[in-house]
Simulated scan of single mutants.
Amino acid sequence: MKYNRKPESGTMGSQKRKLKTKPLLLLIGILLAFNIFWFIGWLIPDKPKQTDEEVASVAGKPITREQWMTAMEKEVGRETLLDLVNEKVMAVAAEQYGIDVSDKEVDLEMALIRSVDGRSHSGQDEEKMRQKIRSNLILEKVLTKDVVVKDGDIKKAYDENVALYNIQTAYRTAIIVVPTKDEAKQTIEELSKGSSFDVLAKERSTDLASASLGGDIGYINDSTDSIDKAIVEAASGTKENSTSDLIALSDGTYAVIHVSEVVKGQSFKFKEVKDHIQREIALGQISQTVSPEAFWKEFDAKWFYGK
């Protein structure tokens, strides 16, 4: 039969070479099979977490993942989604109208906000704050792109408000307020041993507004009048990423502060703020307030909560 034929002498070298390739072919086959199984596994989605999974319990009564997620959605879901949609709408508007917002413009707005109302940053993530400012700048530029403002009016507004553009040094500060000096000393000792400022603020600070934010009170400077002056003075004498000694407050309580960031003061010249002032004047000439939602229909925005 054909498969019993002896190979001719001229084919012996070729046959031997073929025999030597078998281990390589076998290895390739194994790797191919492994890749196929891996690809199939990758296509199969992970098993979803069960909605009745217990995430906490009180007196033996469970709180399920579904209850937790539903409560979170009711608490912050609508506002969070609204911010995301508006950011996307403004990004599309920027493309549509050929509008650009530079990092330098965002930096200016951040500096002006810190100067006027730095405490509004409390509990705010820096990057999210910058994104909100960027979206707001796009909105302002869209609304004022056809409004004409005379250069003389812009210069006059600058000269009359030049103090607003001399920005003081600001300190991103967190505080822990306690009733007694001994508690303040104990707090400082625990911090020196590595305890988390954020956690201690939530656990023991009597300043409830900041305690829920890990003690964060945003940016303060020498002109901040909504907080005890002793805290402002202590912040100005505390290095960046450092914790203060105990601070005696005017109401008889004590505080410890942590300064996470020091933003050096600066003065802005007219040419640096001219566009900002022009927009402010132009916005004042618009008879009604316009929000990003006004552009939803134009850019076909839809969301979970309906129209």
Rank of each mutant, 00 (worst) to 15 (best):
T173M: 06
D151I: 06
D103K: 04
D83P: 01
I99Y: 10
S250D: 15
E160R: 00
D222Y: 02
D100W: 03
V232F: 10
T180M: 06
N35K: 03
G10K: 15
V92F: 04
K181E: 15
Q15M: 11
A91W: 02
F295I: 01
L208A: 14
D46K: 02
G60L: 03
I286T: 08
R204W: 07
A94G: 09
D46G: 10
P23A: 09
S102K: 10
S9M: 12
S244E: 12
T224A: 14
K307L: 09
W38C: 12
A157E: 15
G60W: 02
K271S: 15
L191T: 10
L112N: 09
S14I: 13
P62H: 00
A235V: 06
K181D: 13
E190V: 03
G237N: 13
K61Y: 09
S135P: 05
E127W: 05
V106I: 15
T144C: 13
L143V: 06
E140M: 11
R78V: 08
G10D: 14
E73N: 02
I286G: 10
V148P: 00
S226Q: 12
I281E: 10
S192E: 14
L208Q: 12
V85N: 03
I220C: 10
A234T: 12
V263K: 01
K302R: 07
S120N: 12
V259T: 07
F299E: 03
E87F: 06
V148K: 06
Q67S: 02
D228M: 06
E126P: 01
T80K: 03
V177W: 05
V116H: 12
A163D: 15
L31F: 15
D103N: 12
A59K: 04
A91D: 14
K181Q: 14
T64G: 00
Q124A: 13
G10P: 01
V263Y: 00
V76Q: 02
M72Q: 04
K49R: 13
E272G: 05
A255E: 11
K156I: 09
T169M: 04
L108F: 12
L164E: 08
D182F: 01
G214P: 03
L82V: 01
K128N: 13
Y97E: 15
L32M: 11
K297L: 04
S14A: 13
V92P: 00
Y165I: 01
S205C: 09
G265D: 07
E87P: 00
E126F: 05
S195V: 07
K202G: 15
L82N: 03
D46S: 08
I277R: 01
T206K: 05
K20I: 13
E73Y: 00
Q285E: 15
W42D: 14
